[in-house]
Design a protein around this nucleic acid. Sequence first.
RNA 1: GUCCCCAUCGUCUAGCGGUCAGGACAUCACCCUUUCAAGGUGAAGACACGGGUUCGAUCCCCGUUGGGGACGCCA
Length: 475
Amino acid sequence: MSVVTRFAPSPTGYLHIGGARTALFNWLYARHHRGRYLLRIEDTDRARSTEAAIAAIFDGLSWLGLLGDEPAVFQSSAQARHAEVVEQMLAAGHAYRCYSTPDELAAMRAEAIAAKRTRLYDGRWRERDPAEAPAGVAPAIRLKAPLAGETVIADLVQGEVKIANSQLDDMVLLRADGTPTYMLSVVVDDHDMGVTHVIRGDDHLVNAARQTQIYQALGWTVPAFAHIPLIHGPDGAKLSKRHGALGVDAYRTMGFLPEALVNYLLRLGWSHGDDEVISRAQAVEWFDLAAVGKGAARFDLARLTHLNAQYLRQRPAAELALLIEPWLAAQGITLDAAGRARLVQAMPGLKPRAATLVELAEGASLYVAARPLTLSAKASALLDGAARARLAALVPALQAVTEWTEAELEACMRHEAERQGVKLGQLAQPLRAALTGRDASPGIFEVMAVLGPEESLGRLQDVLSQANAAAQQSG
RNA sequence: GUCCCCAUCGUCUAGCGGUCAGGACAUCACCCUUUCAAGGUGAAGACACGGGUUCGAUCCCCGUUGGGGACGCCA
């Protein structure tokens, strides 16, 4: 039997980071077993579903490369089928009409809580004669669940889980308005879509027992279940808004690469020995449910950041130059062909100094900033009178460099430092400040080589002439 | 209140009866060095607790504690 998995998000705003991991595990499991991976939008609750939310989910999945193998199924389109299945159950005596109103049920629940009793539905209409039905009340249809015994879930991650049937009440299958509930829809849809493995969050573990009862009432084969642990925030509590980024898109805007996020999510709860950086192809080959951990894991941004740095370095320079353009644009920097070429050339020196695209763009901006540069406070501090004098003396030497390469520039600078009787750093640091406007940058010879003689000397002159102007003004 | 799940360094984890309890991130130190990174070397750092089972428990069983989840005519 060929494996069929599915990811079934409800469209409530964005693709949650936990949902992304569920999707990933489903995708990997299907790929590993050469099966199919499907998508189903659980939009049964029409009021809470919006086009924008659905688009956001597809967008997130697309970015991560986790779109379904076939067009997504919309649960709301199968309502007639759901109602038909409930009719069958009614006819077979596996379901019954319940005339209790929502108000009545709420009162029943409140009473149970006050009396510290179980809050399960008490089955008051289970055996009652429908003739006693109150006039004008549309009934909900409930499952006639087994009273005694237990329901067993053979979970691929959690192991065998047994739940006493006394703990499971007669759940609603069809609402009074004729719409199906989630519990019924999932079962029917998973069955109709031929889903063989249901891989989802831990919070559905008890639901698996309820759904098993529905499968059994229908005489359908129960799929294999795998309930993966939830992701917690850094403080150990459930991941929530106050932890910052929740949606996958937020990580995208923080400058993370999709392959890094995927690798991070994969290792969160799943492991393969001591392997940390795992390619997509390798993950497909290695992935299995048995290696999924049982405990909830905390989200660790530092770890994601480190992984991102690794993947950043694997990307070709040209790709990275393209990827950072949006962040550059946000700084008001638009690139021409020469600027792009300069960034590509600068990438090898920029890469190891950045962990995210945001940092990479920040580092890259020095190469494409417009003259004259705005100096940072620390850069200005480096350019005191003595430093400026050293730089002024350096200018003729630089102008004499015939081959503007890293090696030639270094030779020139070392020679000049010796001539001036200073350490290389005393020359290099002020030069860095003048050429980059900052106190930290890639190697200064590399910076000069990428900038070219014209831009380098130009930036240097900017600083020197500003100093002259300032001196004339005060003097 | 009832039921279910979980438990190894700060964090993610390896371990599947006998290990100096391994790796990674983070932290600290040193090296490299024109700055900042990167890189290299090293350090510190964990089996929640109590009972069993066993010649021997991180590992198997029970309990305690702690954490999480579920108990809707939400999904």
